[in-house]
Design a binder for these strands. Structure first.
Lengths: 131, 131
DNA sequence: ATTGGTGCAAAGACTTTGCAGTATT
DNA sequence: AATACTGCAAAGTCTTTGCACCAAT
């Protein structure tokens, strides 16, 4: 069988995602990874994101019209999209109580939920990053 | 100044969105509108969606990686994405209590929130549409 | 030494734009 | 009659794929 090899590119991309404050878009991953690997190609980023997704190590999150990626295994969490700087943060508190199996008015059986909060991140509240 | 004209295409597209069970993707709009206007072109759909958005009559919603559009003025609501048939429904009940201005742990000031529920719609629960 | 991985460039998919004919005002 | 709107096709943008060279095993 084909074994997935360990390469510098994959390590860096995985680390970039792991160290991020929240899910990153392809462009973010590319930019941050190029700090260590200036010659990194876009195709490699797409291929690696696909591979990591298939391996279940990361997964896509859609937010504000773009697909972002975050490491799996973070447990139940949600996202905060800052209207000031545009960054997306991971939040570990959940504002809803909807156990899987809950039946919503109308007969909708809920299996999972996703919450996105919009507002100002701490830095933007203090005017450090607003723009 | 340039006045936006009333055309059959625009009327049909606006009606399709208005009559929908939830936000529609470009392809859905095109398919449904073509029932009345077989010759409708994709470009017109894109242009009309953009126009209606600028007029504030509709607005985009991103869900599962695709952009969908829904009429504005529906009041506070959320969405239910059916894992069976893939359709997205509008829900008028809100499972969270997060008034604008709430400060989330970490110092995040919440201005708005979005909730997406995933599960089985009534039809899919009854096996009528599952696939 | 093998063979999977990478970067580049070409190919796809989706969205926007240019243009000439059409329809609304 | 004037001019905004439409459909088609070309042009963009983003993502995927093909290929020759490179690197991990």
């Amino acid at each position: 069988m084909s074994a997935a090899r360990s390469t510098r590119q994959r390590d860096v991309i995985a680390r970039v995602l792991h160290d991020a404050e929240g899910p990153l878009a392809v462009g973010d991953v590319l930019a941050r990874a190029r700090t260590d690997l200036p010659a990194l190609g876009v195709a490699t980023v797409y291929r690696t994101l696909k591979l990591l997704t298939e391996q279940g190590r990361i997964h896509p999150v859609t937010l504000d019209g773009e697909t972002r990626y975050e490491p799996s295994g973070k447990g139940h969490h949600h996202h905060f999209s800052c209207t000031g700087c545009g960054r997306v943060f991971t939040l570990h508190t959940c504002p809803v109580a909807l156990p899987s199996g809950t039946v919503y008015p109308g007969g909708f059986v809920v299996e999972a939920h996703e919450v996105t909060l919009y507002g100002r991140c701490p830095e933007c509240v203090q005017g450090q990053r607003a723009g």
